[in-house]
């Protein structure tokens, strides 16, 4: 599904990723943990193709294609989805129009026809029920005036509608209360399937009680410094990241 080899990237002349490797097979759930500023969000941005982030070395293959060669939207068409740590507000652009446009665009890339408005509205409503987001939010501007939790729910809602094959969740848990966390986790778990993979970036072990990962990796100093199974997360929680200081080159 995803093969990252020796990925190096920088932003504004600053090296952030320094030789990162990660292999994700279909159906797997990988958790990435690490201290603040380790480069977790940078990894997400590089994978999604954000312009300011420059890849200086390494390769990323996704679904057998060279991911780094593609435009932002082409990556989305191919099934890559990034749930942003800080979703941006776009006042004036209605959430509904936004969702319909993106669903149509992704469907088109997969050779499917546009949904009728009625079909789409049905889907959108179901999804918004699942993430417990009031339907009124569909009418508002994209993330406009949403609380932190509502923005995160909106990200999950988009994920449900776009049916991606690889979902990268960047600290989707941060700033959520227990109920919201449960909702988000339920949403993710409901989408788990043999041909869909997840990369769950989180700062806290807490989320992993709800979304149980197959692998846990620690990202520090721009690379994966330790990998293990879900017990690694517990260990990190107990000992803190300084426990790994020796491992950071």
């Amino acid at each position: 599904m995803l093969r990252i080899e020796n990925l190096c990237a920088r932003v504004e002349e600053k090296e952030i990723l320094k030789g990162l490797n990660l292999h994700v097979k279909p159906g797997e759930v990988h958790a990435i943990m690490g201290p603040n500023g380790a480069g977790k969000s940078t990894l997400g941005s590089v994978l999604a193709g954000r312009e300011a982030f420059e890849v200086t070395a390494g390769s990323v293959a996704f679904q057998g294609k060279d991911l780094l060669d593609l435009d932002v939207e082409a990556r989305a068409h191919l099934g890559l989805f990034l749930a942003f740590q800080y979703p941006v507000e776009i006042p004036g652009v209605s959430n509904m129009e936004f969702l319909k446009s993106s669903v149509d665009a992704v469907r088109k890339a997969r050779g499917k026809s546009d949904l009728s408005s009625v079909e789409f509205m049905k889907l959108a409503r179901e999804a918004s029920k699942k993430v417990k987001l009031d339907q009124a939010f569909l009418k508002r501007g994209v993330n406009e005036g949403f609380s932190g939790g509502e923005k995160k729910r909106n990200e999950i809602l988009q994920m449900m509608l776009l049916e991606p094959s690889l979902c990268i969740l960047d600290e989707t848990d941060s700033g959520l209360d227990i109920d919201a966390l449960q909702t988000v986790a339920d949403g993710v778990n409901a989408m788990r399937s043999p041909d869909r993979s997840f990369v769950v970036v989180t700062h806290y072990q807490r989320l992993l009680d709800y979304i149980v990962p197959d692998y846990v990796h620690v990202l520090a100093g721009g690379k994966i410094v330790k990998s293990g199974d879900k017990s690694l997360a517990k260990e990190l929680e107990a000992k803190g990241y300084s426990w790994l200081d020796g491992e950071v080159a």
């Binding site: 776009i90 652009v93 936004f98 665009a105």
Partner: peptide, 26 residues
């Protein structure tokens, strides 16, 4: 914002139209 729209599969030109409209739509 353009990046956000594009990351959801909307092409750049379409994203620009949506945002220009949004600018007025507010």
């Amino acid at each position: 914002s353009l990046y956000y729209l594009q990351s959801r599969g909307i092409d750049r030109e379409q994203a620009q139209i949506m945002m220009s409209f949004g600018f007025i739509n507010e």
